[in-house]
């Protein structure tokens, strides 16, 4: 394995190429610009195609086109650009096409700020587009995890023939950290939907159904797929949870900061633990529901969004007997370890 000191955004771009991505289309927006910038240099060297589209909408549809040919495709943006891409995302979900979409999120709504935030949680996890579809959502909390989950996202997108979203933020994207990069992969050929090659029966890629019964059948199949994610694909980090009385839930950049807070609290004799969702879809409901009210006194949901968004999913999953509190920052302010420690001491009383 090759070890390098890399910027989060560049690590995502490099790992996508190593995962076999050979088509990238995007449109500039801070704080994700290093992804298209890196792709513009390295994608052609890898024998692939880089396009800066005329808009977010166009570049997302270019990915639809590339995916139709069985090519591993990626696009990236920040929240307000992702909104524009949701139209094509819905068409891809409807046409059963795989793709990887990266959201390096920033403050909002509107133009908001260019600094990191987690304000896109609801947009991304509650179905990022029209028509009631879901995408699997990975939320890395280190640059290494950004690499690992980007690679995995390509495999999962292809397995499910459905777009996968990697949700990071401006802090994880801009920071540099040590990473081990994976060996380059050669993606499989002869994909069942691919329009490439002609020595076979005609294939049709579409998201339109004339017969309502066909559409209903499609939706039922997708419901089965989403159910299978809950059963098989949940990823969660449990840290110091065996005897935890005060549990922190946090994802992405907040997850790693909360982990350091748990260390600090443990040094002070507080039985703190961390439950960090790595997949936001599927959400670790089961792991949260299993928290025992006899052992866990309180849970604190830490997010870089106000009002709390993951907070609502945590509340829903958690036993009604366990009180849940919220610590949020937003607008581009990154939560500090000391704030989390103080919040736990405060809720401990």
């Amino acid at each position: 394995m090759e070890k390098r000191f890399m910027k989060g955004n560049e690590a995502i771009a490099e790992s996508a190429i190593r995962a076999g991505c050979r088509f990238f289309a995007g449109y500039p927006i801070t704080p994700q610009n290093e992804i298209p910038e890196y792709m513009s240099r390295k994608m052609t060297e890898a024998g692939g195609v880089f396009v800066q589209g005329e808009s977010e909408i166009a570049s997302a549809y270019m990915v639809f086109g590339g995916a139709s040919m069985g090519t591993r495709c990626m696009t990236s943006s920040s929240g307000l650009g992702i909104c524009l891409k949701t139209e094509a995302l819905s068409y891809m979900a409807g046409a059963r096409l795989p793709a990887v979409v990266v959201n390096v999120s920033r403050g909002g709504p509107g133009l908001g700020t260019i600094q990191p935030s987690q304000q896109d949680y609801n947009l991304i996890t509650n179905g990022p587009g029209c028509g009631g579809f879901s995408c699997m959502v990975y939320a890395p909390s280190t640059v290494q995890e950004s690499v690992d989950l980007t690679c995995k996202a390509f495999d999962m997108a292809e397995r499910d023939r459905n777009p996968v979203i990697v949700l990071t933020d401006g802090c994880l994207g801009a920071m540099m950290e040590s990473v081990e990069l994976p060996m380059p992969q050669t993606p499989g050929e002869n994909l069942e939907w691919s329009l490439a090659k002609s020595d076979r029966q005609a294939r049709i890629i579409k998201s339109f159904h004339l017969d309502p019964m066909d559409q209903e059948q499609f939706n039922e199949n997708m419901a089965d797929l989403y159910k299978s994610w809950d059963d098989n694909d949940v990823a969660v980090e449990l840290y110091q949870m065996q005897d935890a009385e005060y549990v922190i839930t946090a994802y992405g950049i907040c997850g790693r900061i909360a982990k350091a807070a748990v260390e600090e609290l443990r040094l002070g004799g507080v039985k703190a633990g961390l439950l960090r969702p790595i997949t936001l879809v599927p959400f670790p409901r089961k792991q949260l529901a299993e928290l025992n009210p006899q052992k866990v006194k309180k849970v604190l949901s830490v997010e870089m969004s106000i009002p709390g968004q993951m907070f609502i999913d945590v509340r829903e999953a958690l036993s009604a007997e366990i009180p849940l509190e919220f610590l949020g920052r937003s607008g581009g302010v990154v939560v500090e370890e000391e704030e989390i420690v103080s919040a736990v001491y405060k809720m401990k009383g």
Partner: peptide
């Protein structure tokens, strides 16, 4: 970046974060 990379090569963990606006 050079300090971060130096620390990594010595086997330590390091992060680098630029302020940007």
């Amino acid at each position: 970046q050079m300090l971060g990379a130096a620390a990594i090569s010595s086997g330590k963990n390091a992060t680098f974060y630029p302020t940007y606006g």
